[in-house]
Structure formats: structure tokens, C-alpha cells
Design a protein around this nucleic acid. Structure first.
Lengths: 216, 216
DNA sequence: GAATAAATTTAGACAAGGCTAAATTTATTA
DNA sequence: TAATAAATTTAGCCTTGTCTAAATTTATTC
């Protein structure tokens, strides 16, 4: 098995790989909140284990074996988040830290049974897809709200930022998963977005719009 | 917060303290499966943190602060075991290792909500009492079956050995928590015990009898 | 295309937790 | 009570994962 630190590196490389092909040492260091030199040490170790492809100075990406481990950790994370919200009544902004710990519980039998217990949910409380027991999941073709044109409509299906502050703000504005919205206007000056929802009109900043994921 | 290793030492000291007033270095080393010298190092660290009372060569016991932490870990362990058996349908011999990991999930809010979710159970699947959110629980006055006289009756309420092998054996013999038994005979030669249960007569070794806890 | 800047890696150190071997203390026994 | 045995602690070393500072490589710019 892998250490907790190794698992966190693999998971982080996976997340960063969604945006860039090769993940750089500095990117990882910033993401994990550590120093570039520490990252280099760990990359050597993971490369040694054949979990990443690593060429000095050229960044890294996951091998098939490494990706399998990363996806399994993400599966655990999202299933525990679902459990915490659906069974223990936590709010969607409260569960991330707890799930960060729980995702490292090793038993796969446990997580498969948890999955069954909850009825094989497809998405976590933030709209992120939950990989099945074979690591398979659909990657939605979601667009940030900031990329939606005026008069177009869509449904909120995910968030990019998972911080409690952001989630609490959305909650307050009733901008929750499943909400239908229409872009009424985009303010020229600062690219703020005016939304028409089922119950009211809301104006949000470009920053917020950029972190809301929409299905058309 | 305390490290995983520290938590395991505190928990172990707590368990061993149930039998002996002061726990010796060697006892701990054997229990934790490590070397006496490693134990000494950790004892110094825990004494430094005022979680144990430690006098070199004289063994240790928990301070009030240390006992509080230990009981909280045990609460978590037993609640997770209950969850695994009652909600995820694991068998009583399958849950110990998983709970060993889960007991270190830090959030107390989480464990309190889990407790509520399950209806505040009083005992784990092995009959051990579950401390409440204030760390309070009744210590049953249970006797090992080996200490019960011929013709006396009682109910199986706990086990001393939690190993899968022992639990599987009990399961096979239908010697489960809540079962009513009567001591029919004690074999003089090897102190084997002949039990009369509701459905049949069973003979068990002194070793087994010694690890079954009975309420009269 | 050299010179500077930015990114990355190497070198050397540290803390946690563990181990072996040696020294010391306590317990036991003749 | 002296001698031996058992238990415990100390000393010194190892691994993991981290850090700072220095060296090296890659990127950028004039």
C-alpha cells in the first residue's frame, strides 16, 4: 500500500492534470502547500514505484497504475461526502475536510458496501461525478457560467471552488445544484452576470460566474 | 492534536489498565507489537504532554486528560464497528481492522452525528459498551464463563478476544451476544465446559470459556 | 545569442517513530 | 546479601517526509 502522503500527491496530480497535460513541480507545490524541493523528492519516489511518468524539469503525469489509485481515492472522497450530507445531515460546505481524512480508509470492500448502502449515487453534494467500483464515470461537458451568452439557459451542475466561503455564498443566493438559470445580462464594465432564476433575479461577479459549472 | 501513534499508545494503555494498575513498558511493547525501547521514547513524549503519569522503571497510567482522549477513541472505534455491522452488513469478525483506521477520523461532530444516526446504541457488535458523547458508560459486571459454577445460567454479553478466528468459531457454534446458556458440566481433566443452550448442548475448551463474558 | 530570470533539482538538516545493542536498574534467588 | 536474571532505559542509527540554501537547468529578453 501507499502512504497517506503518496496518496495525496497522486490525487493532486490527477486534479491538476485536468487542466494541463503535464503538471509542473511548482504547480504541485502550490497546490499541496509545500516546497518545490519536497515535491521533487516525492516525485522521484512515485516514479520509482511506476505511478507517475517523471522527467526532471519536464513535469509529471500519471501512469495507468497511478491514475487508478487516484480515481479510487476520489471515489472514496465523494462517496463519504455524499454519506455525510445525505445520511448525517451535514451541509455541503462542511464536508470537505472530513472527507479528506476518510478518503484514506483503505478497505475497498467497505467503500463498495457504502456505495450500495446509499443506492449507488452518481454525483457528490457538489455535483462532481462519483466513479463506480471499476473507476468509471462520465465527465460532464460543463461550461463555466462566465462562458454562457446572454439569453442562454442552463442548469447548475457543479462548482469549481469547493471552499466553505464560496459554497455558503451560493447557498445564501439559492444558487444550488439543480437550479435552472438564464443569463439575463452581462455588465460590460466588470463582466458581472445578471441571472434570472425561477424565483428571482440575481447579480453575481465574474469571479463567481467563473466558478459555477452549467449544463446547457 | 495528537499523532496516530500517540492515540494508539493512549488507547493501549487504557485497555491494559483495566487489568493492572500500572502498565509496564514490556506489557505495552508486547501489546503494540513494538520494542521496549520504542515504548520508552513514546512514554517520555506522552508524559511531556501530561497525558500519562510516568516514572522510569515504574510503569505508567493515564492522567485524566489522557483517559479522556483514550475513551474518545474507543467511542469512535465502537460506533464505527456498530455502523459497519448494522448499516453495511459486515459480520462481527470482519470489522475490527477497519474500525482501527476509522477511530482516528478526528471530527467529534461527525461521530456525534453518527451516534444519533444509529439511535445512540449502547453496545458494539461484540457486546462492549459504547461511551456517550461525554465519555460516560457503564462497565458491566461480567464474569468469564470459566468462572461460572455448574448448573448456573447466564447470558453471553461480551468477548475478551476479538480475533476473527475466535469470533468465527463462536458464530459457528451459535455462541453469539444475547444467547442464554447454562453450565451443564465442567470436565475435571482439562476444565472443558459443557453448555446447555436453547437449541443444543455444546462442549467448549477452558480457553474458549475464559474468553466469553457472561451476565448472570 | 549572451545575459538575466524563473523553475527545478541537489545537498544537507530536522522531527517523528522505530530498531539494535549496550548500559543501567530492579527483582529474584542461592 | 551477593550474584544472577529480568526489565527498562540510553545511545546511536535508519526511514519518511519535510525544510532552507545552493547549484543547475530552462525560459525569456535585450
Amino acid at each position: 500500500m501507499n502512504t497517506l502522503a503518496e496518496e495525496n500527491y497522486l490525487k493532486s496530480i490527477y486534479h491538476l492534470s485536468l487542466d494541463t497535460e503535464n503538471v509542473s513541480t511548482n504547480q504541485l507545490a502550490a497546490f499541496i502547500n509545500t516546497k518545490a524541493s519536497s515535491v521533487t523528492d516525492m516525485l522521484k519516489k512515485l516514479a520509482e514505484k511506476a505511478l507517475i511518468n517523471y522527467t526532471p524539469y519536464q513535469g509529471v503525469n500519471l501512469t495507468v497504475a497511478g491514475e487508478k489509485i487516484a480515481v479510487n481515492i476520489i471515489r472514496k472522497h465523494r462517496l463519504w461526502e455524499y454519506f455525510l450530507v445525505e445520511k448525517l445531515d451535514f451541509k455541503w460546505d462542511e464536508v470537505h475536510e472530513m472527507a479528506e481524512e476518510m478518503e484514506h480508509i483503505s478497505s475497498n470492500e467497505l467503500i463498495d458496501r457504502l456505495d450500495k448502502f446509499m443506492g449507488y449515487p452518481k454525483h457528490d453534494p457538489h455535483g462532481d461525478p462519483i466513479p463506480d467500483c471499476n473507476g468509471l464515470f462520465k465527465i460532464h461537458n460543463l461550461k463555466p457560467l462566465s462562458a454562457i451568452a446572454v439569453n442562454e439557459s442552463g442548469v447548475i451542475c457543479g462548482v469549481r471552488d469547493h471552499s466553505p466561503a464560496f459554497l455558503q455564498y451560493l447557498e445564501k443566493q439559492s444558487l444550488i445544484i439543480g437550479k435552472k438559470i438564464t443569463v439575463a445580462e452581462i455588465i460590460e464594465f466588470d463582466h458581472s452576470v445578471v441571472l434570472q432564476t425561477t424565483d428571482k433575479e440575481i447579480q453575481i461577479s465574474r469571479e463567481v460566474a467563473n466558478n459555477l459549472l452549467i449544463a446547457l
